[in-house]
Amino acid sequence: MIHRNTLRGLLLGAAMLTPASARAAGETIGFSQIGSESGWRAAETTVTRQSATERGYDLKFADAQQKQENQIRALRSFIAQGVDAILVAPVVATGWDEVLKEARDAEIPVVLLDRTVDAPDDLYLTAVTSDTVHEGVVAGDWLKEAVGDRACNIVELQGTTGSSPAIARKKGFEQSIASAPNLKITRSQTGDFTRAQGKVVMESFLKSEGGANICALYAHNDDMAVGAIQAIKEAGLKPGSDILVVSIDAVPDIHLAIAQGEANATVELTPDMAGPAFDALEAFWKDGTLPPKWIQTESRLYTSADDNQAVYEEKKGLGY
């Protein structure tokens, strides 16, 4: 035991001594992506590739197709190739200890993107994620501001039941509006994060509550909001004015909706998780600076005050 710890100390020490100035651009970085299950994920991949190219890295990309064993295999292959760093967006939280130890033994820093793992935090360099509770808070704060003092009945479209973003975004929003007694959630149902379900559930809300009694819609993601906007229009109401629409993610189509006045605000879940990760890696390579264990990305709010048409044009090519 003592022996192993000593060894670890030596290895870590060595890891911190070796990098330094000798390295120039042209580092090889392995990136194990979960898959392409959503537009956001596709955009994250695109942005990561782009910023790696800009910085002159050689990015080795591995698509795990939603399987942890594929990710572990990819990580082992990156280790065998002796890459300079590994980025991984872990598909599940558990079962990473072994392979992360292998990476540490090979002195390869690992950065977690977008999700974290249940493993001792000395096994990875840092995790770059968004604070999903905070996203809900930002959405709630915007709505409080927009509504002011008038009474407002809110309907909520939740994400997939039991998924961590759904739980956190609900929690954050509720925290935020708890201080405003005039804001009340009257209906809350899951729309499974999809457009189709968002539309179906909104149709039901409009009938059970009566369209005139709904003042705002809070959707846990933009896709559900886009579906709900169609349902609101088909019910003969104006989304964006009759019913305020606030959602999270900031995918291109919601920017288009905001530009057309059919949605009001969205909180960005940035697809640029790799940017902060690369910054942290560069600092680490340069002089061994250890970043904090958690780097929180900005949850930026977009409203009609922004040039949403321009943002749409800019984001449209990212693969959302």
Binding site: Q158, T161, G162, R187, S188, Q189, V200, V201, S204, S208
Partner: peptide, 11 residues
């Protein structure tokens, strides 16, 4: 959907 029950009960 119309019952307004918490989503955990749906399934």
């Amino acid at each position: 959907l119309l019952s307004g029950m918490p989503v955990e009960f749906n399934l």
